[in-house]
Amino acid sequence: MLTILFDGVAYGMLLFVLACGLSVTLGLMNFINLAHGAFAMAGGYCTVILVNRLGVPFVLGVPIAFLVTALLGGLFERTLYVHVYARSHLDQVLFTIGLVFMSVAAVDYTMGSSQRFVQIPDALQGQFDVFGIGMGKYRLLIIVICGLLTIALQLILAKTRFGSRLRAAVDDQRVARGLGINVGAVFGITFAVGSGLAGLGGALGAEILGLDPTFPLRYMIYFLIVVTVGGTSSIVGPFLASILLGIGDVAGKYYVPTLGAFVIYAIMIVVLIWRPQGLFARSTAR
């Protein structure tokens, strides 16, 4: 039981790191980026190449994956995404689905369609046994890293100058512009960091989530669930949503394997009907 909880939390943490960038970009620019998973996949494959082919140590490979995807995200943001912000949601959906399709086919072409694994150092394999709970070392590492990242993100958003600018821009873009905040730059940086985090999540999660060219499609719905259920007004909502989703998914697959992901989709639809603004959104009266 507790092992399932533990696995679920690890999975949920991972989902949060993967999806938090999406939540911020959606909240900030009201932009629906279905291609977010493509950046996560980029991070995963980047680590595979670095660690498996070039023999870079795992501890180094993961941060590099973060940097590479952040750069990639920044580049895409500046060259392509900027043109689409002001468009209708339909255009945004078409555009980002197009990117997903291209990334899927491109990775298939260059890396092959089979599933890839990152070689994890021996030190991280195996389990601890604490009070009869089997805790995978690697999953524990994920929880620690993602937990630290979450705290760091929360601190950045709450304490730093950049964080306050970002929050101002999320709350009301026009007011933020009026205050002299360069919303475009704030968004560019946020997008890059968000993509980088997705890449990091992809790198760490390749082992658990499975890495193959259809990754962006398979996990698109999960990211969107995190974002829509968690709301976009803070990172606490998506965090809680991720954890719940992680536990729900792991437990669902364990206890009622016949239903599979059905449970998750059903929960999502119920939540969206019950609270269209998200489960943890601030319930502000108009």
């Binding site: 078409l94 555009f95 689905i97 399709f101 291209m102 990334s103 491109a106």
Partner: peptide, 9 residues
């Protein structure tokens, strides 16, 4: 699929 994506973009 790549070309579909390209057309969309």
């Amino acid at each position: 699929q790549f070309w579909i994506g390209l057309v969309l973009v």
